[in-house]
Design a protein around this nucleic acid. Structure first.
Lengths: 124, 124
DNA sequence: CTAAGACTTGACACCGATGTCAGCTTCAAG
DNA sequence: CTTGAAGCTGACATCGGTGTCAAGTCTTAG
């Protein structure tokens, strides 16, 4: 598939896909004319990249950690520790986010207590 | 308390505290010489601001939403809808983050399956 | 063959919270 | 009063992923 197809399939812009490649997160073969071609599996890989980015991992970190996804043979102890570290970070983030959500939910709750029912969000 | 004390109490830098004030998230009275003074309650307020920022709310959004925390009388339906919207956003973020965590956890798991036990993160 | 649409590289811009530096003022302890 | 620590304002820098524009090249339908 070409870059436009991959973009459409993943929701990432072509710009971002080139950036991922530039950062060593994604590879492609080139056509005779120099245009990128991707295997079908690239869709899943890009999805993973995006979710890790959304989780606050930096592209440099993803580059360190990603290879082991595709290639189980290179799973070194160092990589295991690195992964565990990132997992821990995400876990902490989730915990804090849950606390924040509870605060927000409490506020929304207090509104409904005052107004009777929760106003429809579409009814601004 | 002065700005340095508030910074120490909250973990925010003095720079950030001034920024919060500039953005209308935080107020202070000034001494005769122009230096900021905060009531004790400011600590809690700054903590809230920081957790909302960490949850991905922008300072502009927080400015809209924050007043209702301190002043229940200004809770308009519009504000309720706004809050609900942000709550939803945070909830979505948490859901996606949970998925990502599961992926990472699965990877770590696969390591321990290969190596026997989970390597201690402190044992790099 | 041709033309339109997709792709390429390279460069610059942006956002938003925070860091940092400079130059000056204020506060408080001795 | 003196002096060093702490504050003040204002400005500029940073980071990282993404948007966007320009000028040129490929691809493919007709």
């Amino acid at each position: 598939m070409r870059i436009g197809d991959l973009a459409a399939a993943t929701g990432a812009s072509a710009r971002s896909l080139r950036y991922y490649e530039e950062q060593g997160l994604l590879t492609s073969e080139r056509s005779a004319g120099g245009q990128r071609g991707y295997p079908a599996g690239a869709v899943e890989r890009v999805r993973l990249i995006r979710s890790l980015l959304a989780a606050g991992l930096t592209s440099a970190t993803i580059r360190e950690v990603l290879p082991c996804v595709a290639d189980a043979s290179i799973r070194t102890p160092w990589l295991a520790a690195r992964l565990a570290e990132e997992l821990e970070r995400v876990q902490v983030q989730i915990t804090e986010l849950n606390r924040t959500r509870d605060v927000l939910a409490g506020l929304v709750e207090s509104f409904s207590g005052t107004a009777g029912t929760v106003p429809s969000a579409t009814r601004v």
